[in-house]
Protein backbone atom coordinates (compact mmCIF):
# COMPACT_ATOMS: atom_id res chain seq x y z
CA UNK A 1 0.00 0.00 0.00
CA UNK A 2 1.42 3.33 -1.06
CA UNK A 3 -0.83 6.35 -0.85
CA UNK A 4 -0.10 8.97 -3.48
CA UNK A 5 -1.05 12.61 -3.32
CA UNK A 6 -3.24 14.14 -6.01
CA UNK A 7 -0.22 15.94 -7.48
CA UNK A 8 1.71 12.66 -7.83
CA UNK A 9 -1.28 10.97 -9.46
CA UNK A 10 -1.57 13.87 -11.85
CA UNK A 11 2.17 13.63 -12.69
CA UNK A 12 1.69 9.98 -13.58
CA UNK A 13 -1.28 10.84 -15.78
CA UNK A 14 0.72 13.60 -17.44
CA UNK A 15 3.60 11.18 -18.02
CA UNK A 16 1.31 8.69 -19.71
CA UNK A 17 -0.95 10.92 -21.74
CA UNK A 18 1.07 14.11 -22.21
CA UNK A 19 -1.35 16.68 -23.57
CA UNK A 20 -4.21 14.21 -23.19
CA UNK A 21 -4.85 15.58 -19.70
CA UNK A 22 -5.35 19.28 -19.40
CA UNK A 23 -4.84 20.49 -15.88
CA UNK A 24 -5.15 19.75 -12.20
CA UNK A 25 -7.85 21.70 -10.44
CA UNK A 26 -6.88 22.04 -6.80
CA UNK A 27 -8.07 25.42 -5.62
CA UNK A 28 -10.81 25.08 -2.98
CA UNK A 29 -11.67 21.67 -4.39
CA UNK A 30 -11.58 18.50 -2.37
CA UNK A 31 -10.56 16.02 -3.74
CA UNK A 32 -8.66 17.71 -6.60
CA UNK A 33 -9.82 17.13 -10.15
CA UNK A 34 -7.74 16.10 -13.13
CA UNK A 35 -9.46 17.76 -16.06
CA UNK A 36 -9.37 15.68 -19.22
CA UNK A 37 -10.91 16.13 -22.69
CA UNK A 38 -14.10 14.08 -23.08
CA UNK A 39 -12.70 12.02 -25.94
CA UNK A 40 -9.99 10.42 -23.83
CA UNK A 41 -12.05 9.70 -20.72
CA UNK A 42 -12.14 5.97 -21.37
CA UNK A 43 -8.37 5.59 -21.77
CA UNK A 44 -7.68 7.75 -18.72
CA UNK A 45 -10.09 5.74 -16.59
CA UNK A 46 -8.70 2.45 -17.79
CA UNK A 47 -5.18 3.62 -16.96
CA UNK A 48 -6.30 4.82 -13.53
CA UNK A 49 -7.82 1.43 -12.83
CA UNK A 50 -5.09 -0.82 -14.17
CA UNK A 51 -1.82 0.93 -13.38
CA UNK A 52 -0.27 -0.93 -10.41
CA UNK A 53 0.68 2.30 -8.63
CA UNK A 54 -2.81 3.77 -8.93
CA UNK A 55 -5.30 0.87 -8.89
CA UNK A 56 -8.43 2.98 -8.71
CA UNK A 57 -10.79 0.03 -8.51
CA UNK A 58 -13.76 1.73 -6.84
CA UNK A 59 -15.90 4.21 -8.73
CA UNK A 60 -17.56 6.27 -6.05
CA UNK A 61 -19.76 8.70 -7.90
CA UNK A 62 -20.55 10.23 -11.26
CA UNK A 63 -22.17 13.66 -11.17
CA UNK A 64 -23.28 15.92 -13.94
CA UNK A 65 -23.04 19.65 -13.35
CA UNK A 66 -24.75 22.31 -15.41
CA UNK A 67 -22.49 25.36 -15.65
CA UNK A 68 -25.04 27.17 -17.86
CA UNK A 69 -22.59 27.60 -20.79
CA UNK A 70 -21.18 24.08 -20.52
CA UNK A 71 -21.69 20.79 -18.74
CA UNK A 72 -19.18 19.06 -16.51
CA UNK A 73 -19.10 15.38 -15.68
CA UNK A 74 -17.27 14.65 -12.44
CA UNK A 75 -16.00 11.16 -11.61
CA UNK A 76 -14.86 10.44 -8.08
CA UNK A 77 -12.64 7.39 -7.85
CA UNK A 78 -11.00 5.66 -4.93
CA UNK A 79 -8.42 2.94 -4.53
CA UNK A 80 -9.25 0.33 -1.92
CA UNK A 81 -5.70 -0.99 -2.23
CA UNK A 82 -3.71 2.25 -1.90
CA UNK A 83 -6.44 4.28 -0.19
CA UNK A 84 -6.01 7.40 -2.25
CA UNK A 85 -8.60 9.27 -4.20
CA UNK A 86 -8.92 11.76 -7.01
CA UNK A 87 -11.58 13.29 -9.18
CA UNK A 88 -11.65 13.27 -12.95
CA UNK A 89 -13.61 15.92 -14.75
CA UNK A 90 -14.58 16.41 -18.36
CA UNK A 91 -16.15 19.54 -19.83
CA UNK A 92 -18.85 19.18 -22.48
CA UNK A 93 -20.50 21.73 -24.75
CA UNK A 94 -23.98 22.78 -23.70
CA UNK A 95 -25.74 22.18 -26.98
CA UNK A 96 -24.57 18.59 -27.52
CA UNK A 97 -23.37 16.93 -24.30
CA UNK A 98 -22.03 13.55 -25.38
CA UNK A 99 -19.25 11.60 -23.69
CA UNK A 100 -18.01 8.01 -24.08
CA UNK A 101 -19.24 5.62 -21.43
CA UNK A 102 -16.98 4.22 -18.71
CA UNK A 103 -19.16 1.20 -17.88
CA UNK A 104 -16.61 -0.93 -19.73
CA UNK A 105 -14.11 0.08 -17.03
CA UNK A 106 -16.23 -0.02 -13.88
CA UNK A 107 -19.58 -1.81 -13.81
CA UNK A 108 -20.69 0.61 -11.12
CA UNK A 109 -20.96 3.24 -13.83
CA UNK A 110 -24.07 1.66 -15.38
CA UNK A 111 -26.58 3.05 -12.90
CA UNK A 112 -24.66 6.23 -12.21
CA UNK A 113 -24.59 7.06 -15.91
CA UNK A 114 -28.26 6.20 -16.34
CA UNK A 115 -29.10 8.58 -13.54
CA UNK A 116 -26.93 11.35 -14.96
CA UNK A 117 -28.60 10.91 -18.34
CA UNK A 118 -32.05 10.90 -16.78
CA UNK A 119 -31.71 13.98 -14.63
CA UNK A 120 -29.09 16.00 -16.49
CA UNK A 121 -29.48 14.88 -20.09
CA UNK A 122 -25.84 14.00 -20.69
CA UNK A 123 -25.62 11.21 -23.26
CA UNK A 124 -23.13 8.44 -22.58
CA UNK A 125 -22.10 7.03 -25.92
CA UNK A 126 -21.88 3.24 -26.10
CA UNK A 127 -23.64 2.71 -22.77
CA UNK A 128 -25.08 -0.80 -22.34
CA UNK A 129 -28.32 0.58 -20.86
CA UNK A 130 -29.07 4.09 -22.13
CA UNK A 131 -32.56 4.45 -20.64
CA UNK A 132 -34.20 6.67 -18.11
CA UNK A 133 -34.17 5.25 -14.62
CA UNK A 134 -35.83 7.51 -12.06
CA UNK A 135 -38.38 9.43 -14.08
CA UNK A 136 -41.08 7.85 -16.27
CA UNK A 137 -40.06 7.08 -19.83
CA UNK A 138 -42.41 9.70 -21.27
CA UNK A 139 -41.22 12.53 -19.02
CA UNK A 140 -40.13 15.60 -20.92
CA UNK A 141 -36.88 17.37 -20.16
CA UNK A 142 -34.11 16.81 -17.69
CA UNK A 143 -34.94 18.38 -14.32
CA UNK A 144 -31.48 19.11 -12.96
CA UNK A 145 -30.63 21.46 -15.81
CA UNK A 146 -30.62 25.07 -14.73
CA UNK A 147 -32.99 26.11 -17.51
CA UNK A 148 -35.56 23.41 -16.71
CA UNK A 149 -39.10 24.71 -16.47
CA UNK A 150 -41.49 22.69 -14.32
CA UNK A 151 -44.29 21.21 -16.41
CA UNK A 152 -47.89 22.22 -15.80
CA UNK A 153 -49.23 18.71 -15.52
CA UNK A 154 -48.36 15.08 -16.02
CA UNK A 155 -51.01 12.62 -17.29
CA UNK A 156 -53.72 15.05 -16.30
CA UNK A 157 -52.53 15.53 -12.72
CA UNK A 158 -51.48 19.02 -11.79
CA UNK A 159 -47.87 19.47 -10.71
Amino acid sequence: MKTLSAQEIFEKLKGKFGDGVVSLQTESVNPPFAVVPPGSIQEVCRFLKEDPDLLFDYLVCISGVDHKDKFAVAYHVYSTEHRHRIGVKAMLPHDNPVIPTVDVVWKAAIYLERETYDLMGIVFEGSCDPNRILLPDDWEGHPLRKDYIYPEQYHGIKI
Binding site: E27, S28, V29, N30, P31, F33, V60, C61, A74, H76, G87
Partner: peptide, 9 residues
Protein backbone atom coordinates in the same frame (compact mmCIF):
# COMPACT_ATOMS: atom_id res chain seq x y z
CA UNK B 1 -19.84 29.11 2.19
CA UNK B 2 -16.98 30.21 -0.10
CA UNK B 3 -17.08 29.07 -3.70
CA UNK B 4 -15.66 25.60 -4.09
CA UNK B 5 -16.40 21.92 -4.48
CA UNK B 6 -16.19 19.10 -2.03
CA UNK B 7 -17.07 15.45 -1.82
CA UNK B 8 -17.66 14.07 1.64
CA UNK B 9 -18.64 10.54 2.47
Amino acid sequence: PPAGECYFR
